[in-house]
Amino acid sequence: MQRNKNKVVLETHQLTKTFGGLTAVSQLNLRVHQGEISSLIGPNGAGKTTVFNVVTGIYRPDGGQVLFNDENISGKQPHRIVAKGIARTFQNIRLFPEMTCLENVMAGQHCRASAGLWSSIFRTPGQKKEEKRIQEVAEDRLEQVGLWKFKAELAKNIAYGSRRMLEIARALASDPQLLVLDEPSSGLNDRETEDLIDFLKGLLQENLTILIIEHDMKVVMGISDWVTVMDEGKKIAEGDPETIYNNPLVVEAYLGKDDDSEEEKI
């Protein structure tokens, strides 16, 4: 299996997360290389989203480490992890519904700004400059995802597909190195999915690395440089999309065992 020689951006080492008696993620080793799109796939309940939540700091791992640029970030607060350069989206889109689209994207810049209480009240020159920059970055990102026309619209009022793009714009506004997308194509129609694939490929020009969870095999095969397959909390395979597609273990995890072989066992 060939893999690009770029440096490793994100690495999980023996990562384990349990909920009560249930082991959601078990000793997972995952590597994401700079400048590639990696996919994490697996059947429902395989623990993919849990991996994302541990990596982005929403959950604390019960064992193992998460290394980002060789720095151990496991157990750190989510806002610190964003500041280090990992931005994410959610499977069930989580926007700020009563705020405008522009304000939503501006929230992404929060960790790149520093104005405090007094400078905000007295509008110091530094704060004004910073606000202007926040707004410019947000406007650029909004334009990039094609939602410029909705900039003054409340986030709750725009269409589902647009909301997904808005969430991606918000994540991008934090100037991340690694973009973590949780099922970005779910709920999108074929055409929107194709646009999304093109968009994500385009993002690689910005020196970004992307890690996605995906169900849609068409998307996975279309954009991934590297695919990791999980089942029941464990990694069962990894490789380039072609290899994964033909791996019997993966087919089994997704479709179940062949009926004939089951019968033979009995």
Binding site: R94, F96, E98, M106, H110, C111
Partner: peptide
């Protein structure tokens, strides 16, 4: 804006730094 973000969705606010 940070205050409003927390009001709207605390988890998303955290995940946005």
């Amino acid at each position: 804006r940070a205050w409003n973000c927390i009001r709207e969705d605390e988890v998303a606010a955290k995940a946005n730094g």
